[in-house]
Design a binder for these strands. Sequence first.
DNA 1: CTGAAAGCGCTTACAG
DNA 2: CTGAAAGCGCTTACAG
Lengths: 361, 361
Amino acid sequence: MGVTIKDIATKANVSPSTVSRVISNSPLIGEKTKRKVKKVMEELGYFPNFHARVLVNGATCSLGIVMPVSMRDQDLVFQNPFFQDVMKGVGSFVHSKNYSLYMTSGETEEEIYQDVVNMVKGRRVDGILLLYSQEEDPIINFLVEHDFPFVLVGHPPDNVQNITYVDNDNYKIAQNVTKYLLSLGHKKIAFIGGNKRLIVTRNRLSGFLDTLSLSGLSVPEDYIKHTEFSIEGGNASVQELLELNELPTAIFVTDDVLAMGVLNVLHEKEIRVPEQVTVVSFNNLFFAGFTIPPLTTVDVNIYQLGYEAAKCLVEKVEDTSATPKCIVVPSKLVVRKTCQHIGDQSLEKISSHLDFQIVVQ
Amino acid sequence: MGVTIKDIATKANVSPSTVSRVISNSPLIGEKTKRKVKKVMEELGYFPNFHARVLVNGATCSLGIVMPVSMRDQDLVFQNPFFQDVMKGVGSFVHSKNYSLYMTSGETEEEIYQDVVNMVKGRRVDGILLLYSQEEDPIINFLVEHDFPFVLVGHPPDNVQNITYVDNDNYKIAQNVTKYLLSLGHKKIAFIGGNKRLIVTRNRLSGFLDTLSLSGLSVPEDYIKHTEFSIEGGNASVQELLELNELPTAIFVTDDVLAMGVLNVLHEKEIRVPEQVTVVSFNNLFFAGFTIPPLTTVDVNIYQLGYEAAKCLVEKVEDTSATPKCIVVPSKLVVRKTCQHIGDQSLEKISSHLDFQIVVQ
DNA sequence: CTGAAAGCGCTTACAG
DNA sequence: CTGAAAGCGCTTACAG
């Protein structure tokens, strides 16, 4: 059915080798022959068979994307627009390099693991991009063991020196966000975050906790909530906080989807934001500027996270000997309306104490 | 580097053919040989080379996914969670059938078209899934011309008899939604929808328009807005409506992201929903129950749309002679708080006049 | 500058 | 029940 190199060869009166060389634009071939062969290719509508090429070259120019698609059993239900945004960044770089994208479709950790094994051992991809990072991840171990090129979006759970990853400096960001809250006068600050196994969650929590304890503030245990990544999760968590005797005056939320759930409950209970409760969040997802009130949140540059990760991975694939590296994507706090409003001057002042870019929108 | 069938053959003292037969579990091979060979495969960690297989079998067991990723030039910026949801459905079915997923990464129509050509002509996939449907789409034409298996999520722009597609009955739904609005007493109803080239937009618009005209109501031209699929798009459109002399009392919005923008502006301008303006929308995206007020919207069963589409495609791939078919995914109106509230009884009454499932949440 | 030959890793008629 | 041979569509040393 498909036109092959042989068909071209016969019709152009040359050998298949010559056709192959014309395709790869080898300088060895004479101009005349090139033109002749190219014309025939045009006429017959030739297109190289991908698999035949891969079989001899080895390189697939494809990357495998590992998404945490709804791991229901782990309550990691990702209905999070975050991933769509990362993928845009990934897609953009990858396209510029003529690489293709392969996706896992597994729905449990075990299935996703199998998907990865298939990709790697079946030689379907040249590298793997992990869009998340969590503790005790068998996939990372598998990849390391097989010395297969991969890049992590997020901070490695361990083995940091040997893994190439792209991440924000979540610990530092969390410190600065917390300092920001402190400078606003808050002392009773609660935390709502995603699954504990995720490294992002842990890093943001540590930054938060460490900063408070440096200020001599301790956080009661029931001020710290871990929940699934959904509006409902955010909902449930604030509800719990609101049942406490001593209410927090600020809530540090690690994701905008969660924050949406938080704002929702507060609005329903007619608790005024930011007058009664201050809310900060992370990720600056597409709806962050349109919640009620508009969310003050850290823009972590999701697109760039994806773009850089893809770039690192392609580099790694094309030069396997490259040493592991880590790219830190910059971020900034986008101040909107969910934190106690203070005069512009004082914001500047606060800002000067922080190691952190602040932008008012 | 990789272990091949040959390695196994030598170590197991059989021929490569035998190993191949063991892998495909051929009944011809004796039990003893099978055990012996399997043991060696185990020891050596054998995994079949995907590309070698494809080269001889032809089948890739891979599907290509065409996403309308941010076609900036066409103002079709899709930051819409819709696609993540469809992909869940697609992934779920595909995984059960051991198929893999390939993604386009192009960012303009031209690039995406090239991605598709590469997939098809390079024999990288067995079928193509188009996650959207629009007028004058060169991709559809290409696929039809090459008689390549594909399935459309959405209604074909033309050539309906020859294309397999999965869609909601958007025209009918729009009719019923409009009737619903009419029965609520609205006469001045505006429309905010996405790009005109998209068939969904057109179908929902026609259903809307036809129903109104059947009721003897005409819609002024400036009551009909087409905008990009973003909160900002929704924002801009209501702003325009609010500048009109004669304000609509209801707005028919074709997508929740747009509706979010609509609600946002109305809230800012302190226009009360639903008391002053009623809003209905489509898709029931993850945040629809959490806007302020919670959105009344049509649940189009996004997941099932993806699931069925993948199913149709695999069927088509595995039986090329299958006749084109069309699957209509059911939908229902989820009544929340953006439409003028009326007593439960009258909702029942209204419902009885509609050819449409209504659910109160 | 061009061609014949071997080979990438598999499968599958064809023999036996 | 098992093996030798041909072939899937390409690339790339090796000759000339």
